[in-house]
Amino acid sequence: MLKLALRRIAALLPTLLVIVTLSFAIIRLAPGGPFDAEQGVSPAVRANLERLYGLSKPLHVQYLRYLRALAHGDFGPSLRQRDFTVRELIAQGLPISATLGLCAIALALLGGIPAGIAAALWRSPAADFSVAAIAALGMALPSFVIGPLLALVFGIYLRWLPVAGWQPGTARYLLLPVLTLALPLAVALARLTRASLLEVLRAPYVRSARARGIGEARLVWRHALRPALLPVASYLGPATAFVITGSLVVEAVFGLPGTGRYLVQGAIDRDYPLVMGMVIVYGILTLLLNLLADLACGWLDPAIRHG
């Protein structure tokens, strides 16, 4: 298990380098530049600006300089959010976004998996129908519909929670965004868990454990659950990507000052350092959660661990 973890961690850095290189190339290949929107800038001034930010150098020189700075933890200055370095912008937004994302994943796991188990164990035509209906709704409704709906009910009719906005250090403002982000994921996880557990319960080794007089509760808990959770753990990787893209929308809907807006705005503005910074942060997050998913798979299945 430790070996598996070390092997995966060792693979993180090269993967990250590939991400940095590719995104560096793609954003530079995109037409336009950071100072296109500046009104009435003479070509001479623009050339000066580009020289100031090192944009006049050949691309490979810029790339190597960027890597060297990155190695020292320097993401560079934002080209459009003047007077802020990318690092400062990330430091402002990331705590909010990370809390939102991780809480949503945790909530989805804690809600979705037990719901899926329950749906698999207590089957009836009515229950199966409700599961299918809720699942269809949960996955079909986009978060920009669920979000305002939740805000309408809990914020305006019931007045339990704030509709939108942010005050540092208050969890109340995060509740609805987390719920909005977690809901579709929880539904997907519940569906996955239910289908997978139903399949495992038909496996020969479950029958064989039953023939040994292992009680039903222990049978599910000890023999069936771990293999059943294997597909669920594998799904954590894609789920991270889902949460990250979802958080862009949710942050906008609830007016949270997270990092999502920097990614969108940075891309529109061709604010190269900002986009790169965001890609790296999200890249690291995705890699770490994928690593977690891999380790979870290794824990669930000894054959993977020994692979």
């Binding site: 020969p204 080794y205 000894p302």
Partner: peptide
């Protein structure tokens, strides 16, 4: 089938 009749993760 002893391959599939023992619980794989125990």
């Amino acid at each position: 089938d002893p391959m599939t009749s023992l619980t794989p993760h125990l």
